[in-house]
């Protein structure tokens, strides 16, 4: 199993999760984070850190977000590891909860 970052991270990208990850399994893209499923140890520490509730256990990912399971694996292979928290985008709060952000994902 692994944990999965879902749509609400897009354009929010707070990176609180990154600080608590004991295995540095977060990878950073321009406006989204993903978890490397091969590195994730299911420790659950990142879930309560996410200010926008965008991290789920693989088997608890909401039905309309299941495509993010594959997307995390795919992008983790390309994007660099991020292991320290960075500043959130200035407009991060405005994007929290906005629907259909997947189209805005930058690769």
């Amino acid at each position: 199993m692994t944990f999965v970052v879902v749509e609400n991270c897009i354009k929010c990208k707070h990176t609180d999760c990154v600080d608590v990850c004991p295995v540095d399994c977060f990878h950073e893209g321009p406006n989204f984070l993903v978890i490397d499923p091969d590195e994730c140890i299911d420790c659950d520490l990142c879930v309560p850190e996410c200010p926008v509730d965008a991290i789920y256990a693989e088997d608890e990912v909401p039905a309309d977000q299941r495509q993010f399971i594959e997307l995390n694996a795919e992008l983790a292979a390309i994007w660099p590891v991020i292991s320290q928290q960075i500043d959130s985008p200035e407009d991060a709060d405005e994007w929290d909860g906005v629907a259909d952000k997947l189209a805005l994902l930058e690769r």
């Binding site: 600080d19 608590v20 004991p22 140890i41 299911d42 420790c43 659950d44 292991s83």
Partner: peptide, 12 residues
């Protein structure tokens, strides 16, 4: 500031 911790957890 946040610390960084190497717990080396094994889950499951």
């Amino acid at each position: 500031n946040n610390g960084k911790y190497d717990r080396q957890i094994i889950t499951g």
